[in-house]
Nucleic acid binder design. Structure first.
Length: 821
DNA sequence: TTTGGTGTGGTCTGGA
DNA sequence: TCCAGACCACACC
């Protein structure tokens, strides 16, 4: 009997002789790979008993009935009655334990309409996830196991006797990044990269180059891939879009060329596992991380990249992108079998960047994995709602609560039809330039509201709740017992506060700081997503009333704080949902205000001081009143924080974004309006002259639906159609980069995918791009287009196009009115 | 498979 | 030809 400690990095199961064997994949401190097998654990689910029949319920009869289900007789292992909570209420269930995972659904369907049964529960928890939850194991954390050890080939196998979670130090998983290049159907190159190994596999051309290994043909190259993976034996294989591209291609070609790619540690081939509608590439015993899915699902909102290509994301996250190599040029090099080094370097760079991204993102993924309690393979592919949901499911087990069922499609449709409820409060900003701005915001407003007011489906309208009524609503929440979700969130929020406190005293470049940062970031993601989860149509713990109540409390608190500030004679200029801006404020005054406010706030609700800003600007919207959600703030360090303006939107071209930013610097930092005007004139002149880098003219817009589904053909749709016509894959979610070219007809008809654009329309870029973005700032400061452009004929012509006369008059009226208000 | 509501603004479309 | 409203994307929190 041996005892092994290991870092648990993946879990799955296989069926042997019709019975499931749970497999835990781990890595010991000394770097040995462990495969722990549990042959005892069995799948189960619950059947809630109908109250009307509980008195007459006879378990032995029930067992007989179960045993009589046709064909499944041998599948049953146990049926027992258990008491557990359902939405906080104790209920009676039959726990049905079956032989194999595949039996669960069939038996559930066979039994759910029996008269003594009210409803089945927890029948759709995948078997290995059930295992990890029930055994209280923490993936990417440590486990200690006992059992009989044996060796099977290279693998150390442990026939599990027992397994528990354990405290453990940092682990060192061997990571390898992979990337391929294709030409038509064919794979022409594969690059592999880790910290001590760089290799490019290719075939069919000559010319030696560093790190390049030339194989006889594609088949030999794929075979070599298998041997390299076997030799390097990585725990983690990282790709960028491997689920949808690299592994799909590799599998296709391997099948076509009849190469067996036994990449798994159990000798099995890579296979695609179904996850909802998508498929993920899975290699047994190795963790395949596809960074693209993680970035798209979780990080996208916090990135400013226009597209989430490896190049763009690497530039933003690592400060280093790819070498510029045109697709067409690369194809030519392959066709002519020359410049092998150029192509090889290019391919190697992809896997290098992928590895460096993994170094950066794996800590975050692993922390999420620990927090949610599921494997990094799964967690790295989850959306926000799934992360929250799986955390809740795990906590439900711990608290003897029954996990609620996923809604049926009909129920989802019904929920989607519900009209929106009222959300956050946005205070109309004071227009113009302000100085000495203090910015405050609530620390996690919605999560702390949930905790403070015990907002949970099972506390809703329970007991009397007289002292816990929702503002502007008849609903209330019981305060007698802590709710299921408030309890979870309290844990999350408290942990995060503790981490942030420790971080304050650390050097931001230290290892410890970075670890803590990843941990608090994981907690933040969960806390922030939990509010939306209540109102999400696909949610198990769906409660619109809870969501509405949270928003209502939120409005109450921010308005309360705004009013309090005003009573104190402070100058509130703006606020959005959980924040407020106060101008003409000193740091000292801000500190006093903060303390006074927090003295009045109940529970864990807390207002935070964000920072002092030297100045800031709010400008009029098209409507004539000051625009909400659009402003710029000048920090003490001379940096500018820009929100909402064109500068931060991907559907504006770089030249207009940069121009707008320069203007904001000129106005706020240099306080030089003439400089701002000169900037605009200069850019307009350059556009007219053709003195512009075409890259700066590209407008990026995402397709939010399939190409055929559009009622209105906007520029990005028109460009996408042309792109598709040239044989490119265009689908829902694709980001189209296009340029508006010269000619007659609508803007859309002149939108060309930027790779194919032959020219650009200076009028469009002046009148519809640069000027609107620039005037957005300058108009509110009293400048007209004439002031900005001067009166030389060329500019005037542009100007007249920009502002049709009637339009000009109307806007001017609105602006005058707005100024006098 | 796409957490919620609030808000701005561009382009197209079809009726006057 | 002009214009309002619909459609659409993307920001903020």
């Amino acid at each position: 009997m041996g005892r092994v400690e290991f870092c648990l990095f993946d879990a799955d199961y296989v069926i042997e002789n019709g019975e499931p064997v749970t497999r835990l994949w781990g890595k010991t401190k000394s770097g040995k790979t462990v495969l722990a097998l549990d042959r005892k654990f069995r799948p189960y689910f619950y059947l809630e008993l109908d109250e009307k029949h509980i008195e007459n319920f006879n378990l032995s009869l029930f067992r007989e009935k179960l045993a009589a289900i046709k064909d499944y007789g041998s599948a049953f292992i146990r049926a027992e009655t258990v008491e557990r909570n359902l939405l906080g209420e104790p209920k009676k269930f039959v726990k049905v334990t079956v032989k194999a995972p595949g039996d669960v659904n069939e038996i559930r369907h066979a039994t759910e309409h029996w008269h003594e049964i009210k409803k089945p529960y927890e029948y759709d928890i995948p078997f290995y996830r059930r295992y990890v939850i029930d055994k209280d194991l923490i993936p990417t954390g440590w486990a200690v196991a006992t059992g009989d050890e044996k060796k099977e080939g290279e693998l150390d196998i442990l026939e599990l006797e027992s397994v528990h979670k354990a405290e453990g130090n940092a682990h060192k998983l061997a990571t390898l990044a992979i990337d391929i290049e294709t030409y038509g159907e064919e794979i022409i190159m594969i690059s592999l990269y880790n910290h001590s190994y760089k290799k490019v596999l290719t075939h069919g051309w000559s010319g030696a180059s560093e790190n390049v290994e030339i194989l006889e043909d594609e088949k030999a190259m794929l075979q070599r891939l298998a041997t390299v993976i076997a030799e390097k034996d990585p725990d983690v294989i990282v790709t960028y879009n491997g689920d949808l591209f690299d592994w799909v291609k590799i599998k296709e070609r391997a099948e076509k060329l009849k190469v067996s790619l036994a990449l798994g540690r159990d000798g099995k081939a890579m296979e695609f596992v179904k996850r909802g509608r998508m498929f993920s590439a899975s290699i047994n015993g190795r963790l395949h991380l596809d960074l693209y899915t993680f970035i798209e699902n979780i990080l996208a909102d916090s990135l400013q990249s226009e597209t989430f290509t490896l190049d763009m994301v690497s530039k933003e996250l690592l400060g280093e992108g790819k070498e510029a190599l045109e697709w067409k040029d690369m194809e030519k090099m392959w066709e002519e079998k020359r410049d092998i080094k150029v192509v090889a370097d290019y391919c190697l760079k992809d896997s290098e960047l992928t590895l460096h991204l993994a170094d950066r993102l794996m800590p975050q993924i692993f922390e999420l994995s620990k927090l949610v309690g599921q494997t990094p393979f799964d967690v790295s592919r989850m959306t926000y709602s799934q992360l929250v949901e799986w955390l809740f499911i795990r906590k439900a087990f711990e608290k003897n609560e029954t996990a609620l069922n996923r809604p049926e499609q009909s129920e989802i449709d019904k929920r989607r039809e519900a009209s929106p409820y009222v959300g956050g409060y946005v205070l109309l900003p004071e227009p113009g330039i302000h100085e000495d701005i203090a910015l405050f915001d609530f620390a996690s407003l919605y999560p702390t509201t949930v905790i403070t007011h015990n907002i949970s489906p099972e506390t809703l309208d329970k007991d009397d709740g007289a002292n816990n009524k929702v503002p502007d609503s008849d609903h209330y929440f019981s305060t007698k017992k802590k709710g299921f979700i408030p309890e979870i969130l309290e844990d999350v929020v408290k942990k995060r506060v503790t981490l942030k406190k420790e971080m304050e005293f650390l050097d931001t470049s230290s290892k410890r700081y970075k670890d803590l940062y990843s941990m608090q970031y994981a907690l933040k993601i969960i806390a922030n997503a939990s509010y939306g989860y209540y109102a999400y149509a696909g949610s198990r713990w769906y409660s619109r009333i809870c969501a509405m109540s949270i928003a209502s409390f939120g409005r109450y608190y921010i308005q309360k704080v705004i009013n309090f500030a005003k009573e104190q004679g402070l100058n509130v200029i703006y606020g959005d949902t959980d924040s407020l801006f106060i101008s003409k404020c000193t740091e000292k005054r801000a500190a006093k205000f903060l303390k006074d406010v927090n003295d009045t706030l109940p529970g864990v609700m807390e207002l935070d001081f964000d920072a002092m800003y030297v100045s800031g600007i709010f400008v009029p919207a098209k409507s004539g009143v000051t625009a909400k959600k659009r402003y710029a703030l000048l920090g003490k360090d001379g940096n500018i924080t820009i929100r909402g303006f064109e500068k931060v939107r991907r559907d504006w071209c770089k030249i207009s974004k940069d121009t707008q930013e320069k203007i904001l610097f000129a106005i706020l930092r240099d306080k030089d309006e003439n400089k701002a005007i000169a900037i605009v004139r200069d850019v307009v002149a350059k556009i007219n002259k053709g003195d512009i880098d075409t890259k700066d003219l590209v407008i990026y817009t995402q397709l939010s639906r399939p190409l055929e589904a559009y009622e209105q053909i906007g520029p990005h749709v028109a460009a996408a159609r042309k792109y598709a016509a040239r044989g490119h894959a265009v689908k829902e979610g694709s980001v189209i980069g296009y340029i508006i070219t010269r000619g007659d007809g609508s803007i859309s008809s002149r939108a060309e995918p930027f790779e194919y654009a032959q020219n650009y329309d200076p009028d469009y870029y002046i009148n519809n791009q640069v000027l609107p973005a620039a005037m957005r700032i300058l108009y509110g400061l009293g400048f007209s287009e004439e002031d900005v452009l001067g009166s030389d004929d060329e500019s005037q012509r542009s100007l007249n196009m920009f502002m049709k006369k009637s339009m000009k008059r109307k806007l001017k009226e609105k602006f005058e009115k707005f100024k006098s208000d």
